[in-house]
């Protein structure tokens, strides 16, 4: 993952969209609710966690594992941006 991809909102959103779309075999709009649409199983949710960590060199621990952070491509993008910006993993 290049520096831009890992740091700009568009770059992150594109990369996450590509991963999710490939995994579910359909185009996934960035604001689509993945849980409501039944696209995400618990297994896939954990795959998303591991993918985001690996692709963007972040650690998603504890409180950041909540469902809302994975609800949509937009939510995941916001999570990655926040974790990338923060010095320490947010865990409060």
């Amino acid at each position: 993952m290049s520096q831009d991809l890992a740091t700009t909102a568009e770059g992150i959103e594109q990369a996450v969209t590509a991963f999710v779309s490939k995994r579910v075999g359909a185009d996934v709009p960035a604001d689509q609710d993945l849980f409501e649409s039944g696209l995400v199983s618990s297994l896939f949710a954990m795959e998303l966690v591991v993918h985001l960590e690996q692709a963007f060199s972040v650690q998603i621990l504890g409180d950041d594992l909540k469902r809302d952070n994975f609800r949509s491509v937009q939510a995941m993008t916001a999570l990655v941006l926040r974790l990338n910006g923060a010095e320490q993993p947010a865990d409060a």
Partner: peptide, 17 residues
């Protein structure tokens, strides 16, 4: 308390992995 508020099945999947 570790975490808190995660969906039960995500937590279970995580631990069981």
């Amino acid at each position: 308390v570790l975490g808190g508020g995660q969906p039960l099945m995500l937590l279970v999947t995580t631990a069981l992995a």
